[in-house]
Design a protein around this nucleic acid. Structure first.
Lengths: 231, 231
DNA sequence: TTCGTGACCAGATTCGAAATCTGGTCACGG
DNA sequence: CCGTGACCAGATTTCGAATCTGGTCACGAA
């Protein structure tokens, strides 16, 4: 049995348990039992329980990021905030761990949020820079309005995204029926808020730089996940 | 000493205490002591502790609503979502009770949120209808885009507002400096998202109906506050 | 008679110490 | 040499006793 294969199974089980039980109730014993390994084996892979569960979350985020990259490579128009976030929205709601992260919040993730804030502060800062550069690239190619400070556009984007994710839990009883429709409203809102008339050629010109930005972010995420391992 | 004056002082003290201590730590004894009345006197005014604190919140909301009405009466352009919410944003952040309601949430308000959800379900539903009619009126006067379902516009508005309020606490470390700037970004976002080129005349034509809607809401709120009293 | 009050009660909440559980280690065995 | 589970210290839970708090109401002042 391969070491990495074993690690994958532990991660998988940990993810299921995290969603089903929530951070506080997940135990390393139960993870080991379900993954059919000894408890000590878990600690051969990750430094601590937090490191393991942080990896679960980071992995889920990375999967969404990879799908995002694939979409951008296949269709340059996916670099537009509306397209990017609309698709992200669907991915996030479909990924149970991330859905929990954005809707149930405290109950499921417990202090994992605080933990990750400290542990990943650097990564979050990089994410901020990446998004800002992304928007700047779009502006340079005439795909976004330039009559506003890019920092303000970034804040508007983040705040609006926060709103649509939070609304998922907060307004669930007065929201339009399907996630697809809500995602559509989200995308349309961002388009009107930020984007000029889309141009395929401009998007194709901007895409390489933007893709490179997210590839760097992906690499940095992978590095961060490695940093959570024992060796 | 007037009965209503006494009630006002109790409300005021209760508000201060609610913000300073949070729902769980506020006691009727302490409210009575600070308001210099007997404990039983508090119960001559309100049915329960929850009724009292619910009234504190409702009163704060009503004050913001009244300022909103005054602004609309003074300047018809204030009926535009961007203008309305931009000013609301400032008011809400300046009103400690409401600021707590939208930023600290659980810690300060405790189970008051759930309590109000049940108690004020009807009022919330009316608020929903009022907002929807408000948007419909704007559309009829050509002040908002009509190429989208009004329900979807309402959801976008609510989700975005939720986002900017939540972001106030969630993104505090990476947000633009002043509340005024953040309020400006919020307003500008809504304008681009929902509004056509503003016309004073169209706004003036739409204003009376819209003002009437919120006056009805204000009346209904006052009625609800009365319903929390003993007699 | 009317209005305000605080002593009082039941039930909720808190406290604290004992009992249990869990993250993390490491000596052992396959 | 790699995987393991018994083991330990410290964290968490339990649960009954002690305390606190929302709400009442008999009483007394006006």
């Amino acid at each position: 049995m391969e070491r990495s294969e074993r690690g994958e199974r532990i991660l998988e089980v940990a993810g299921e348990l995290l969603v089903a039980w929530g951070y506080g109730r997940v135990t390393i014993d139960e993870i080991a039992r379900r993954a059919k390994v000894g408890k000590g084996t878990v600690y051969l892979h990750w430094k601590t329980k937090d490191a393991l569960l942080l990896t679960v979350v980071l992995k889920a985020k990375t999967r969404a990021l990879q799908r995002h990259l694939a979409r951008m490579r296949a269709d340059p128009l996916e670099v537009l905030p509306s397209r990017m976030m609309g698709a992200y929205y669907g991915d996030f709601l479909a990924e149970p761990v991330l859905r929990a992260l954005y809707t149930d919040d405290v109950d499921v993730l417990g202090r994992l949020n605080d933990s990750s804030k400290k542990e990943f502060a650097e990564l979050v800062a990089l994410g901020d820079r990446v998004l800002c550069r992304h928007l700047e690239a779009l502006r340079e190619h005439g795909l976004m309005y330039e009559d506003t400070d890019v920092r303000h556009q970034q804040y508007a984007l983040l705040a609006t995204a926060t709103g649509f994710f939070t609304a998922e839990a907060l307004l669930f009883d007065r929201a339009p029926d399907t996630p697809e429709i809500r995602g559509g409203i989200f995308a349309e809102s961002l388009r009107r808020m930020l984007e000029t008339t889309p141009s395929y050629d401009a998007a194709a010109a901007a895409a390489p730089e933007i893709i490179a930005l997210y590839e760097e972010f992906e690499a940095r995420s992978a590095e961060e996940m490695r940093r959570q391992l024992r060796n």
